[in-house]
Design a binder for these strands. Structure first.
Length: 843
DNA sequence: AGCATGTCCATTTTT
DNA sequence: TGGACATGCT
């Protein structure tokens, strides 16, 4: 929390401001006076920040008392409501900034809110100390009460990497095979348990048994113990420790109840169970004592001043523990809650909203909103659905459309390609490189996750927190000092035996004869260095100290001596790393920032097309949006369907909804007939979501060119879509039911009905049927796209080496190798390819 | 210690 | 197919 001060005294009388300038403009310290002031404001006319809000937004801002759920659809001004509401509370003197708890999921959202509140309130009000992510606020709470969680207040926050390494050690210490029981998957299990708020004693018997021959619970316990001895926390603990503290120390909880007059939560649909418990503890005051607990008379109404903002239709993080149910249940959880729907959309055209609305209406279990707009749309551009032969052509065509738009004066920055899975990006990147079209990929690996930055961090962590064994292990032999596994083991064992940190153990060990001379002197040097750096921590500016550490440790030299291509880049990153420290007051502050934020600003000024996943597009908007890959198996993704069933499908549909609602003016959706998955070509069928788009708002785009040579001659490429009644049938047959059909039936039926529905493929449906029939042994239980995975372990192909076969994409060829149902075929024109036997037919 | 070879895997991502 | 990772060889 280095980036904003909490200069408001913590447990003081809430009504006695410490510093006069902390008083919000126009507000008086006491509740009664505040309300009087508010009344005066009313008489004078409404505050300017309220003008320009629509009635619903305004209601959401002004309903300050009691529980409120704001259902804010995409592009309905959610952030505006949230920030204005805070400004309103402060401006009306209902609370000081320090008495408002405002929680977001991402640092980005927190930053944005902070800025916008600043704009609303001007400079006269200091930043809000309790605005932040669940985790950053969790840290803040935990630092105050660390001892109640058996930690010191300078505990370290471990990231996923640290956690995995730690768990790996534990698994090995148990004498288990870390191959058979990968640390990563156990880390995921722990994470999932923590998302649900479960401590080792609370996990289900089944879960406990599921890992490491029934040692799951034991390992989880061992892990927690290890964290405690390391004086460390993982991300989950940042929530769980406060929860436990609140539960076991009602007095402490009560103090926070008094402190936080107003609680606001952003993206409520993304909360997991632990976050929900945390919120509930803070928000739910004991009913019977509401009055007496409120001596200051602030709370005019009984109940909680909790305002949750979210959109059940945009819940796309179920797979990482988010419980849509939290938002669906809100009114039950908080009786008497006001529910305010924001449905007026300020972002997209009516066509786009129409498409989005009809698509999402196929979900059950929603609270139900329909976005609308009054804004005229001069272009009257419908959503365009395009077909392409394969992913290569898809990329080519998208590239062409982008260039066309660019020629018409559209900025690349205003365009985005949103994919379901990141492997799809590559084809676009390749194409854009060829075209010389600027693009940027949003999402990829982060600055602080890079190897060299993590190494540098590890050095700093050992200096700042000598007990940080994970960091110590990471850099003990980086750069190489001849301190290999053997030395590491000795230090480790020595430390474990005595229960001391490894740095200390190393310090002791060099005094003994236990190490061989060479490692001993190397280790002595390391230890002496660290001790020296530690002694400098308070007397040397932290950036200078960091430079010193990297130089004297030989770390910088290591990269300077490295002749590989990436070394210069790494050195550059290290410089950038030091530079980024300048923004922080101290080493401690910096380390905390990195642990929680893992984010470094990049300077992106160029005009470039944005490429990212649908997930990372949430919250963003673009003039023109491309949504490629709308095919069964990819989108909706097969695994979501397999693992999540109906709710998995609904989450995929919400993801589609998120994608569609990112577009302001132009939306292009693409699907292809052939996609290479795991290196093998597969026929694909259009996504069921295409059937779920309303005819009135959608236009089937004609292919306007010869893409790739197959198109013009091969019969398919010149896609023709039947305009007559393209969507009619599919509504009566929900895609999901269709999906339950047996693969062969599904293949025939889908192609059959689809070619009569929105696609006409000359000669395709017929051929495909016969392909399917050629492989009767494969029984896909669920979805069409599944064949690949299902077919792997199935009987050997009917094809033989030397057979002549025909493939839709590659034409005629001769089978060269048969491997189960995978064939290597020497095609006459296309050369050697690996294909599934189901996609070729005998000639 | 560093390269060659084999093996396994293959959504989505924040903190 | 290709990449990440581990093992094993020189």
């Amino acid at each position: 929390m280095s980036d904003f001060p909490d200069d408001m005294p913590f447990f003081g009388e809430p009504d006695a401001p410490r510093k006069p300038q902390e008083r919000p403009a126009g507000a008086e310290p006491s509740g009664i006076a505040a309300r009087a002031m508010a009344a005066r404001n009313q008489q004078r006319g409404e505050p300017t920040y309220l003008t320009g809000l629509n009635p619903e937004q305004r209601l959401a801002v002004e309903t300050t008392e009691g529980p409120v759920l704001v259902l804010a659809g995409a592009g309905t001004g959610k952030t505006r409501v949230l920030t204005t509401r805070i400004a309103h509370i402060i401006n009306q003197g209902l609370a000081y900034p320090s008495q408002i708890l405002a929680v977001t999921f991402t640092n980005k959202a927190a930053r944005e809110m902070r800025e916008r509140i600043g704009v609303l309130l001007g400079d006269s009000v200091e930043g809000m100390p309790w605005l932040g992510t669940f985790h950053s606020i969790g840290v803040k709470l935990l630092r105050r009460h660390a001892e109640l969680a058996h930690l010191r207040s300078d505990f370290t926050i471990l990231d996923t990497d640290d956690v995995i390494r730690l768990i790996k050690q534990l698994i090995q210490a148990e004498g288990l095979d870390d191959k058979r029981w990968p640390a990563r998957s156990f880390a995921n299990m722990i994470d999932a348990w923590k998302n649900k708020g479960l401590s080792p004693s609370e996990i289900s018997e089944g879960d406990a048994r599921a890992f490491a021959n029934g040692k799951g619970r034991e390992l989880y316990e061992a892990y927690q113990n290890r964290l405690r001895t390391l004086n460390a926390c993982d991300f989950g603990d940042l929530l769980l420790h406060p929860i436990r503290i609140f539960r076991t120390h009602p007095d402490i909880l009560r103090e926070y109840h008094q402190k936080f007059r107003y609680i606001l939560v952003d993206e409520y649909q993304d909360t997991n169970t632990a976050q929900y418990m945390w919120l509930r503890l803070l928000a739910q005051r004991p009913q019977n004592k509401t009055r007496t607990d409120n001596p200051d008379g602030f709370s005019a109404q009984q109940g909680v001043n909790l305002c949750c903002v979210g959109d059940d239709d945009q819940s796309i993080y179920g797979w990482r523990g988010a419980e849509v149910d939290n938002i669906l249940r809100f009114e039950k959880d908080f009786p008497g809650a006001a529910v305010i729907k924001l449905e007026r959309n300020y972002r997209s055209t009516a066509h786009i909203l129409g498409a989005a609305g009809y698509l999402i209406s196929h979900n059950e279990g929603r609270l139900g909103k329909t976005l609308f707009t009054d804004a005229p749309d001069p272009d009257d551009a419908r959503v365009q659905v395009h077909a392409a032969w394969d992913s290569e052509e898809e990329a080519r065509a998208v590239g062409e459309t982008i260039e066309q738009a660019q020629r018409h004066g559209h900025k690349l920055n205003n365009m985005a390609i949103l994919v379901r899975a990141s492997f799809q990006m590559r084809e676009f990147e390749d194409r854009f490189v060829t075209l010389g079209l600027n693009y940027r990929v949003i999402g990829g690996p982060r600055f602080y996750e890079r190897l060299e930055v993590r190494d540098a961090m590890a050095y700093l962590r050992v200096v700042a927190q000598g007990a940080d064994d994970l960091a110590f292990e990471r850099i003990l032999n980086t750069p190489k000092r001849g301190l290999g596994d053997a030395s590491m083991r000795q230090i480790h064992d020595y430390a474990r035996e005595r229960g001391i940190p490894m740095l200390e153990a190393a310090h002791d060990l060099v005094q003994t004869e236990e190490l061989k001379p060479k490692p001993r002197s190397a280790l002595r040097e390391v230890v002496e260095n660290f001790y020296r750096w530690q002694s400098l921590i308070d007397i040397t500016p932290h950036t200078e100290l960091a430079e010193m550490i990297l130089d004297e440790s030989g770390y910088t030299a290591m990269w300077q001596n490295d002749k590989t291509a990436e070394a210069p880049g790494r050195l550059e990153n290290l410089k950038e790393f030091i530079r980024s420290m300048e923004d922080y007051e101290s080493l401690r502050g910096f380390l905390e920032h990195v642990a929680l934020v893992m984010d470094a600003d990049k300077n992106e000024n160029m005009d470039a097309v944005n490429i990212m996943t649908l997930h990372s597009a949430k919250g963003l908007e673009f003039e023109t949006v491309f949504l490629p890959g709308w095919e069964e198996g990819l989108f909706p993704h097969q695994r979501s369907l397999d693992e999540g069933g109906r709710s998995g499908l609904e989450e995929e549909r919400r993801l589609a909804y998120v994608g569609v609602t990112r577009a302001k003016k132009n939306l292009h959706i693409w699907f292809v007939s052939n996609r290479r998955i795991h290196g093998m070509w597969q026929s694909t069928i259009p996504s069921r979501f295409l059937d779920e788009l309303p005819e009135a708002h959608v236009e089937i785009a004609e292919m306007d060119g010869n893409y790739g040579g197959y198109g013009s001659s091969g019969g398919y490429g010149q896609s023709r879509f039947e305009k007559a009644d393209p969507f009619q049938n599919s509504y009566s047959t929900p895609g999901w039911q269709r999906a339950q059909q047996n693969r062969n039936d599904a293949t025939r039926n889908n192609w059959g009905s689809r070619s009569g529905a929105n696609v006409e493929r000359i000669g395709y449906g017929e051929t495909e049927s016969s392909f399917g029939a050629g492989r009767g042994s494969v029984k896909g239980r669920t979805i069409d796209g599944e064949i690949v995975s299902k077919s792997v372990n199935v009987s050997t192909s009917d094809f033989k080496v030397g057979s002549r076969v025909f493939h839709l994409k590659f034409g005629n060829g001769t089978v060269a190798v048969v491997d189960g149902n995978k064939l290597t075929v020497e095609f006459d024109k296309a050369g050697q390819k690996r294909v599934l036997d189901s996609f070729v037919k005998p000639v």
